[in-house]
């Protein structure tokens, strides 16, 4: 497999990897670094790629694992502080946009969901994967996915209604 063939294989779902990483890591730079790493890993194993039935799901799983590793590393070192700093900045920035853009509230609410729900919602509502594919990517059972997804959707709805009725927007 040469470079152009490899890129042709990767390109269609490259941005899905990016959005998944972004959902995990919140920071855009971190997400970009993460997909760069994942793609490099794929490139190193390019001879094996053809043996996988679903390269996209495989790459998504790799991205998930890579992001979890990064988050774990952040939790064990003092880097968590940096992450928190970043988040704070983001929220205040969000608050500015909030006044003009209701859609960004959804983004903020989504980022505030527990990690598992956030990722499942990303995969289903934005990337439109089937439950079977999500199960493959995240390595969890489909019933668990349905429960988490339902919870995530309802949380978003409740928070949206709350914000609306309090007149924050």
């Amino acid at each position: 497999m040469n470079q152009s063939q490899f890129l042709a294989l990767i390109m269609p779902f490259k941005d899905k990897l990016y959005r998944l990483a972004l959902r995990y890591l919140i920071s855009k730079d971190a997400a970009e670094d993460a997909i760069q790493e994942v793609v490099l890993k794929l490139w190193k194993n390019k001879e094996k790629l053809n043996t996988y039935k679903n390269v996209e799901a495989f790459a998504m799983t790799m991205t998930k694992n890579y992001c979890l590793d990064i988050l774990k590393a952040k939790n064990t070192t003092n880097l968590k502080l940096v992450h928190n700093n970043y988040k704070d900045k983001n929220i205040s920035l969000d608050k500015q946009i909030e006044l003009t853009d209701t859609i960004s509230i959804v983004q903020k609410l989504l980022n505030e969901l527990p990690e598992k729900q956030r990722i499942i919602m990303q995969l289903r509502d934005i990337e439109q994967y089937s439950f079977e594919e999500i199960g493959k990517i995240l390595e969890i059972r489909q019933t668990a996915i349905r429960v988490s997804l339902s919870r995530a959707r309802k949380t978003i709805r409740e928070n949206l209604i709350k914000q609306h009725s309090y007149g924050i927007t």
């Binding site: 890129l7 490259k14 941005d15 990016y18 959005r19 970009e32 997909i35 793609v39 859609i103 934005i126």
Partner: peptide, 13 residues
């Protein structure tokens, strides 16, 4: 809209 969120950094291989 979120589906249009894409990475601006080109991937280097």
């Amino acid at each position: 809209q979120n589906k249009k969120e894409i990475s601006s950094k080109p991937i280097q291989v």
